[in-house]
Design a binder for these strands. Structure first.
Length: 479
RNA sequence: GGCCCGUUGGAGAAGCGGCUUAACUCACCAGCCUUUCACGCUGGCAUUCACGGGUUCGAAUCCCGUACGGGUCACCA
């Protein structure tokens, strides 16, 4: 049987990295087994719904390369795919439970419930379960919620795809609300009903849902259905080992933010897949297709996945290196334009700028910072750089020779010609290797590390280059 | 507090009873390559798997306990 899996977001905002990861693993599981990937919108918390949230979630999923087989935007045989459009279904099943005496109406008000909990707390009760006050309450003409009657002394065990055998006891679960006073189901009820109605076979979700599982299993049992296979993935934690909080501004955790910075969707896809999962093979840079092929739910980790931004940067850089120049240009161009860097520059400038920096670029918008660092005049020399340059005999005459050779060139300069000039200079001064290249590199860029020298000189342009050489030659402290 | 889960190097992370003198990746260091830099390549980097007991001929791997970390206990999802 082909699996049917789902990603069930509530549209309360943008696509979070944790949600993206849930979507991604479900998608990988479905595609690996030639099954179906469904997106179901869980919008039963009317107060928190953000209408643009749905569109944003769908758009970013698509940007990541995760295309649902069934969703509000794709036709499917199990719709509607938005819970608020399925209210009659939940009502019908809730009534069934009521009739079978597996659920009951609860007339308690929010204040009463709150007071009840306070009292339990004061009494030292640590479960804080509902008192079942309304279990036998006579019918009243008042607003009510419907509670599920948790079977006493029952055990709920399931074979979790990642954690193995997990058991919960009914003693630890109070009678919970399945239908709110406003006629809208709660998450656990709607979720169970839909998972059954949509013929979901496997549920891969975050570990924060593990305690919901017995509740959902109870619904399945009460309605005579058999539950899907559950798998609970470990949480994504930050440097401090805490669950990633959407309110934590220190880490970028929305897909949109990475998209806006010029990260590549396939790199994010790759990175997220490694959050709580590891491939059998030894490499870790993969295309989405390769990940689908390699995916194996048995290799989902049981310990929390740490969100490692350095690793993301590295992975993105690797994917950038795989881009052809056209694609890389398309990635960088918007950022360069937005930063007004291209004004008065011709096409070849962009090409050589990108060519010079392509190896060290971690994400698209970084090209702007690299540009500014590079074209900033008066770069300060590090102590390492100063120390090095003062040890070279004859630096001054080397740099002067280079300048003279540069001036003699009247043709249009290219990286190859810069290479010749360096060669000439070396010959004249009797210098080679590090002693030849390093002073020139330092004069040109202010640093001992950087891109390919001839290419970068070409990018800098003759005038800027000359100015930098002259400035260094005038600096009495250094030379 | 109850219930559930986790703890392997500077970092991520494999390994799930003998093939492990603990993969792989990032970072770092050294060497090679390149007349420089970067890329790339090669090598180095945990005598040890939170701690304490136990089971076993044999344990990072199984069991118990302790410590630490996390999740969850809503008419939120």
């Amino acid at each position: 049987m082909k699996p049917r899996v789902r990603y069930a977001p509530s549209p309360t905002g943008h696509l979070h990295i944790g949600n993206a990861r849930t979507a991604l693993f479900n998608y990988l599981y479905a595609k690996h087994h030639q099954g179906a990937f469904i997106v179901r919108i869980e919008d039963t918390d009317v107060a928190r719904n953000v209408e643009t949230g749905i569109a944003s979630q769908m758009a970013h999923l698509r940007w990541l390369g995760i295309e649902p087989d069934e969703s509000i935007e794709h036709n499917g045989a199990y719709g509607p795919y938005r819970q608020l459009e399925r209210l009659d279904l939940y009502t019908r099943y809730a009534e069934q439970l009521l009739e079978k005496n597996l659920a009951y109406k609860c007339y308690c008000t929010a204040e009463e419930l709150e007071a009840e909990r306070e009292a339990l707390k004061d009494a030292g009760d640590d479960k804080l379960h509902y008192s079942r006050k309304c279990l036998h309450a006579p019918h009243q003409d008042a607003p009510y919620a419907i509670r599920f009657k948790v079977p006493e002394n029952s055990t709920w065990t399931f074979e979790d795809m990642v954690k193995g055998n997990v058991t919960f006891h009914s003693d630890d679960i109070g009678d919970w609300v399945i239908m709110k006073q406003n006629g809208i189901p709660t998450y656990n009820f709607a979720c169970a009903v839909d998972d059954h109605l949509m013929a979901i076979t496997h549920v891969l979700r975050g570990e924060d849902h593990i305690t919901n599982t017995p509740k959902q299993m109870m619904v399945f049992k009460a309605l005579g259905w058999s539950p899907p296979v559950y798998g609970h993935m470990t949480l994504i934690v930050n440097e401090q080992g805490k669950k990633l909080s959407k309110r934590d501004g220190a880490i970028l955790q929305f897909i949109e933010q990475y998209k806006d910075l010029g990260y590549l969707p396939e790199a994010l896809f790759n990175f997220i897949a490694l959050l709580g999962w590891s491939p059998q093979v030894e490499e870790e840079i993969f295309s989405p297709e390769a990940l689908i092929e390699h995916f194996d739910a048995r290799r989902l980790s049981t310990s929390p996945a740490r969100f490692d931004q350095t690793k993301l940067t590295y992975i993105n850089n690797r994917h950038i290196k795989m881009l052809d120049s056209e694609a890389l240009k398309a990635l960088c161009l918007p950022f360069l334009e937005q930063a007004n860097i291209l004004e008065g520059k011709d096409e070849s400038f962009v090409d050589s700028l990108i060519d010079v920096f392509r190896d060290r670029l971690s994400y698209g918008s970084e090209i702007v910072a690299l540009y500014h660092d590079f074209f900033q005049d008066n770069p300060e020399l590090s102590s390492e750089t100063q120390a090095f340059i003062t040890t070279i005999e004859g630096v001054r005459s080397l740099l002067e020779t280079f300048l003279r050779n540069l001036d003699e060139r009247t043709e249009v300069l290219t990286p190859d010609i810069y290479k010749e000039i360096i060669k000439e200079t070396g010959k004249t001064c009797g210098m080679k290797g590090k002693n030849l290249f390093m002073p020139i590199r330092i004069a040109a860029s202010g640093s001992m590390h950087g891109p390919d020298l001839p290419k970068m000189m070409h990018l800098l342009g003759k005038d800027t280059l000359k100015r930098r050489f002259v400035r260094l030659l005038q600096d009495e402290d250094i030379l």
